[in-house]
């Protein structure tokens, strides 16, 4: 393992690189002086605590840098608990590198506790060679969380995302992008659990499905009795490009408070043919017009420029691949 270690890439544009090899924590690099990192690890779980030493807000980019070599023990689950202290703006990104492997089955459990006045942007990412089962738990205390859940890769995956508020005044947004084709299968479950007041939750899932792809989405919203001023919005929009797509989308609303603004819905996305015609009439090919159209739908909701920059090419390629007619 040490021999191959020098193959591992560090990503300089991240202040913190947390490097795993075959799901074992290898090293943590932190180049930010305003941040202190504490780490405890044992055989089954890794705790990482990120603390802001200064009193003011600090912004950091954190990379969960996963590396896999040929001898992966598939029974080794990656269990990680991250505690994000107060006054931290954090962009958290996952990156998977496979060396000498064509395929990987991976099981990840990540728990994140995020504290007062902090702000987490989490880009959930995968790789074309990974079958994955992911469980993510986010616990919030007076903080804001944006999750970008991307499933635009070639292999199947199962994701569970749970967000639980541990105080009043929490804001969280989940933005899911799912582009599936061939025989791809995706199963995602979202739980939002809120027992406090003045919390906002916004969930939007846009899917584009072609060929024989299969998708199961379940969104559960729980809002406790006698809570006040909560807002919860959940929306699924699905574009189905083939008759053979299997789709099962279920929202579950368990709302026991009277003082809540809530809306939810599942829509079949309809392509606006006037837009497609406009683009075609400017000489843009059918494939490019449709690609542009779907990109416009997906990009319109991504307000964060950094995130958009990181994912746009991947999305574009996958859409193109998804739209190309199979022979």
């Amino acid at each position: 393992m040490y021999l191959i270690h020098n193959k591992i890439k560090y990503y300089k544009n991240f202040n913190i690189n947390i490097i795993f090899i075959n799901n074992y924590l290898k090293e943590i690099y932190c180049i930010n002086k305003e941040i202190k990192i504490e780490c405890i690890k044992n055989e089954s779980i890794i705790y990482i605590k990120i603390i802001n030493i200064k009193k003011e807000n600090v912004s950091i980019n954190l990379l969960l840098n996963y590396n896999y070599f040929n001898f992966v023990n598939i029974f080794k689950i990656n269990k990680l608990k991250i505690i994000i202290g107060k006054y931290i703006n954090i962009l958290l990104i996952e990156k998977y590198n496979l060396y000498g492997l064509n395929l990987l089955f991976n099981y990840n459990i990540i728990k994140i506790l995020i504290k007062d006045k902090s702000n987490l942007k989490y880009l959930k990412n995968k790789n074309n060679k990974i079958f994955s089962l992911n469980k993510i738990y986010i616990y919030q205390i007076r903080s804001k969380v944006d999750i970008y859940d991307l499933d635009i890769y070639d292999l199947n995956s199962i994701n569970y995302i749970t967000i639980k508020n541990l105080s009043d005044n929490c804001i969280n947004n989940i933005y899911g992008i799912y582009i599936l084709n061939n025989n791809q299968f995706l199963k995602n479950k979202f739980y939002y659990i809120n027992k406090y007041n003045n919390c906002k939750n916004y969930q939007k899932f846009i899917g584009i499905f072609n060929d024989y792809s299969k998708i199961k989405l379940k969104g559960v919203i729980f809002i406790k009795k006698r809570t006040r001023n909560n807002i919860s919005y959940q929306h699924f929009i699905n574009y189905i490009l083939s008759n053979n797509v299997y789709i099962n989308v279920k929202p579950y609303l368990n709302i026991y408070s009277n003082n809540v603004k809530c809306s939810h819905g599942v829509n079949m996305g309809k392509i606006d043919n006037n837009i497609i015609y406009y683009l075609l009439s400017r000489g843009i090919s059918k494939l490019k017009s449709k690609t542009l159209y779907f990109l416009s739908i997906l990009y319109n909701d991504i307000k964060d420029k950094n995130i958009l920059y990181l994912i746009k090419n991947k999305i574009k390629n996958k859409i193109k691949e998804c739209l190309v007619k199979k022979k």
């Binding site: 837009i275 406009y278 075609l280 009439s281 000489g283 090919s285 990109l295 739908i297």
Partner: peptide
């Protein structure tokens, strides 16, 4: 798109908006 490639251009009475 083929028509456009042949050199015909239509300026629309009501040009559309494309968010995103």
């Amino acid at each position: 798109d083929k028509i456009s490639k042949l050199g015909i251009f239509l300026s629309f009475q009501n040009p559309i908006e494309i968010e995103g």
